[in-house]
Computed example of a mutant assay.
Amino acid sequence: MNCADEASEDDHHTHSHSHSHTHPHGDPPVATTVAQSLNHRIDTPRLAAYNLRNPQHELPRLFKTQAARLETTPVFRSHFGPELLITIPFTGPVKLFSLLVRAAPDAPHAPHTLRLYRNAPQLSLDSVRAARPTYVCEHPAAASAAASAADSAADTAGFVEHHLPRRKFAGTSTLTIFFDPGPAADPDAGPALELYALELRGDWAGPATRAPVALLYESAARREDHPVGQTADAAASSSRLGL
């Protein structure tokens, strides 16, 4: 049950259930909150999935709102074999903190390995294995996930939170997730992967929204609207007349 940084070994990396977890490599990861959800920052018309049995137009429903996060329908399944590739574009740059996955709790339908790619929207199932992932996480075994399910109400939802190295996911405009069934699985046959919900958490780094500035345009200035200017004109006229 570990995550591996493909770029360096000096980052802390782990995943945990939605409750606090002992970090296997030192300090526990920084906790995230519902307020840091980035699901509403996803550019849903540009979502794409490869080897998905469900219609593409249903894909935004995988990124459920907080009100719907406990729903288990629809179930998103891979089509041919257990591989699945999902490309998630954002409406602006974000800094990712974690990825929450709610999936089938039992093998063989549960995820095995998650390979994450930052800003690589061109990847497909044909090219993804040759690309170097930004980060790799192993999804916990079903028995481990179920063992502490009674610890909190949040855990009964079945979410597993994979904490990410934040410095490596700053300035993320697109996140590509490859659900790799592992070397023992047949990528072209076998049981389908089953997902119920995904949630991304982090900081929005997009352009700040500014309030519109109201501008007043006058086609012709009116003297009565500018008493100060009128006084100045009167003073100038008096000066010219020697008053």
Rank of each mutant, 00 (worst) to 15 (best):
G242R: 12
P82W: 01
T91A: 12
F80T: 09
A150Y: 06
L62T: 05
A142G: 08
P140T: 04
R53K: 14
L62K: 13
E58M: 10
T65F: 07
T172Y: 05
H25S: 10
T176D: 05
P183T: 13
Y196N: 10
A7W: 15
P108E: 03
P108G: 01
G242D: 10
D126S: 04
G242S: 12
H17T: 10
G190Q: 11
K64F: 00
P187C: 12
A220G: 06
G206C: 02
E58V: 07
R132K: 12
P89C: 06
R222V: 06
R118V: 06
H15W: 12
A142P: 05
L52E: 14
P191N: 04
S238A: 15
G171A: 15
L123W: 02
R223L: 10
E6P: 07
L52Q: 14
H57I: 12
R46W: 14
A143I: 15
A235R: 08
E83M: 09
F159I: 08
P121V: 03
A197L: 00
P89F: 04
P227N: 04
T91S: 14
A48S: 14
G206N: 02
T209H: 11
L198M: 13
R46A: 12
R222G: 00
P140Y: 01
Q122D: 04
P133L: 15
P29Q: 07
N54A: 07
D186A: 08
F179S: 01
A185L: 03
A141I: 02
R201D: 01
T134F: 01
F178A: 04
T33N: 15
P121E: 04
V160N: 06
E138Q: 09
H25Y: 08
N2I: 13
F169E: 02
D106F: 07
L200H: 03
L59H: 14
P60R: 09
A31Y: 14
A147V: 01
D155Y: 15
V94Q: 05
A157W: 05
P121R: 06
S152F: 03
T209K: 15
I88S: 03
R61E: 09
T44K: 10
A154W: 05
V30I: 15
D10T: 14
H109R: 07
P212E: 01
I177H: 05
P108A: 06
A236N: 11
G182W: 11
L195C: 07
G206W: 01
D233C: 13
G242E: 14
S144F: 09
I88M: 04
A211L: 15
P24K: 01
G182Q: 11
P181Y: 05
R166A: 12
D155A: 10
I86W: 00
A157L: 13
A234M: 08
G171S: 11
D126E: 05
Q230S: 09
N54L: 05
L198A: 13
A157H: 13
V101F: 00
Y196P: 09
L70M: 06
T174M: 07
F90Q: 03
R222Q: 08
A214C: 08
A4E: 15
R118H: 00
G202W: 07
A157P: 07
D225L: 12
